[in-house]
Design a protein around this nucleic acid. Sequence first.
RNA 1: GGGCGGGUAGCUCAGUGGGAGAGCGCCGGCCUUACAAGCCGGAUGUCGCAGGUUCAAGCCCUGUCCCGCCUACCA
Length: 887
Amino acid sequence: MSPELSKQYDATDIERRWAREWIDAGCFTARDDDPRPAFSIVIPPPNITGTLHMGHALVLTIQDTLVRFKRMQGFATLWLPGSDHAGIATQMVVERALAKEGIQRKDLGREAFVQKVWEWKARHGSRIQEQTRAMGASVDWRRERFTMDEGLSAAVREVFVRLHQEGLIYRDQRLINWCPRCQTALSDLEVVLEPTSGKLWTIEYPVPGGARRLAVATTRPETMLGDTAVAVHPDDPRYRDLIGQEVELPLTGRRIPVIGDAELVDPEFGTGCVKVTPAHDFSDFETGRRHHLPQLTVIDTRGRMTREAGEAFAGLERFECRERVVAALQEQGLLSKISDYPTEISRCQRCNEIVEPLLSRQWFVRMEPLARPAIEAVRQGRTVFVPKSWEKTYFEWMENIRDWCISRQLWWGHRIPAWFCGCGEIVVSRETPPACPRCGGALKQDEDVLDTWFSSALWPFSTLGWPERTQALAKFYPTSLMETGFDIIFFWVARMMMMGLKFMGEVPFRTVYLHAMVRDERGQKMSKTKGNVIDPLDVIGKWGADALRFTLASMAAQGRDIKLSLERVEGYRHFVNKIWNAARFALLNLDGLSLQESRPADRTLYDRWILSRCHAVTTEVTQALEEYRLNDASATLYNFFWHELCDWYLELTKPVFAGQAGPAARAESQRVLLSALDCALRLLHPFVPFVTEEIWQRLPLSERSSHHLATSAWPQADAFPRDPEAVREMEWLIAAVTGVRTIRGESNLPPGKPLSAKVLTDRAPAREALSRHRDTILHLARLESLEFGGPGQRPPQSAVFVTPDFEVCVSLKGLIDFEAEKRRLAKDIQKSEQEEGRSKDKLSNPSFTDRAPPEIVQKERERLAECQSRLERLRRALSQIEAWSRE
RNA sequence: GGGCGGGUAGCUCAGUGGGAGAGCGCCGGCCUUACAAGCCGGAUGUCGCAGGUUCAAGCCCUGUCCCGCCUACCA
């Protein structure tokens, strides 16, 4: 560490150094036997194929800020990192890599392929961890977990077996979402709906023995090959007579029944007739079960037409088949209408392929019994959502929950612990069973693996050692906080709630804090295909992690999307630099610091003021962080540090450090500066950990409770005395200086030009305070003289600035621009007159004075009085100027 | 179809009943010995639109128009 601080802050080396040193020093290590109250968060696991994006950067910023805050407050703090194995995504990535070498997954065989995936993970799977370090995240790396770890895998088997024993996991042949490209089943949540402008085809099904036809409409004409009925409403007089009869299914030579079904059919919609394809449509599937209809699969797992589709179509790709079917129907005159129709197509979340409903045997979790306690827990407030409005979304989904298809036809993942025997026996077991318990025959394990989300649902307790009864679980479960994006509320939050309650008997987290989405500056979702992603690592490389963190924290207002603009980051980089330079200044001036006890009697007004401000700011920031208002906390700190500490305290203290107030005041100001800076750095540390740690290490503190700022104590407001009188005096001082500066600025006078000023007032306290600080005012306002006088005693040819308690006049003999001065005053008068008018109207309204709270009325009276006094003085000033300009 | 959120300065956004704010940008003046990534000063708004409640509305209510998101088996 070089003793000299460079003029400009360079984040790169400093951030890299601290990221390592904190870890080496064990600053973030959580102990299971820590007697202090716990604060714990598990990071919702990012997947191993991922690289850090802005969403992660936001998660890490928010969580790290809160975690560092709690750690400094003295909680036994655990922040647990890890990642999930992302079955589909990872398998796809590795398959693609192998394909480049000309290798197919099937050629390798299951075991060899899984081995390849592990190798891939070893090489590429830790990228996100490195990036997490770059953000400064204070996680406990020794507790890092991966969903495929031995312990977590044991937890998965345990949960599967127990749910199966209770009948909450079952196997069934039913319609599921199938991705023809990934070749696996998907859960409802892994399917995204995309609005599309489609078409609606109306097809006519002839009624045998006459010219009558039944018209049905469809958005997927190719599925008509799999129709096994036509449904009408049982009460519809148009068709009632046909129920129980048959119609001809065109192109197939088959006849299918007409059924009456009040649930499926809305007689008002379209023709009032619906074709029923139980094997290719979810609502038709249900209808088929109700009426015991045959299920005819005409599209296979690859999206091709089966033999059942008929000779003319078998083997065709599904969309090509659609065209052929339409053409054939048209040819036969059975296509009565084609209209444009807005619709939504289902796509695979991972590969974007159009998902196909497919009849298939899969494993499911019965959700309703698990959802009930999870709903109850939130109703009772055992888990609280922030912002609260998300509870509604949670309830909505939980109350209409559907069973969860958990089997996936993949190789990478937790293999389902179920074994089949030729005798029909199914064994579900934690360990591989030696033989069939019924017939003693050989067993074959289910080929499928579990949905990745099945293992992440266990994350809050599997990472802490469950199913073992560990000390870590006892100490840190339930976790304090789940912090994540609202887009993940069903994937994680809801499922973690259900599993936590089921297996731990208690909610997995006390609070769910849902942050907004990060978008680009135009409000678009960032995505690689749109090419609008902002890579956090680029931003960190350019401006530093501190700047990025402060930006995200500032913009993380609750319940609102974050439109990130790089200009904003650049702006906050300036703030980081400001912190750096304020520290440089302080360190230069703390030279020869006396380490003796602070002596309040030696304090200057500025010392008393800044200490009082430390009190207020500590209170505000602490409260804002307790309430997850990171944006308020960061704004408070920004203003305090820059516009109070730097702009006023440091400027005011320069002469004190130069010795102008004597050695005792100088020594005390040094001590106060040190303590104010120390306070500011502590408060800022959760937001900008790197720069604050670097500076804090160089502070000549007489004692350190900790080797690192990261593990030091959060400031106590009461350590800083409140001093309302000092605050009031400072307001006068600031007003006087600002008054002169404003006149100088508006009269276009060079800042170096020496001027003479006079303060006019009949208010003794203000006058006394200002005269006590005459030297300071001379210095800051660059005056050569400052006099005092009563109201009306204006120096000739002077410009005036009116404040509530006094007027500041600046002599402008020979320099005055009468017209400019008149314009300025006239404008000020006009504004004040408007204000006066509004106040008068209000006060003359009896319903206001009668009904408004007395303190509001009183405030209004004061406002009016002040306004009138101000107006009077402004008018006098204006007539004075007019008089002088005529001379 | 249902639900949720948003529309405030040129831009990005704070502001949940008592005279609209910030950052960036803009204009003018400054290399004042911590910082030009800086300092000092300044300008800028029918708070989407229309009603209503209230002594008082950016904020609460109703309607309406845009924008975004979530959710849903209308063929």
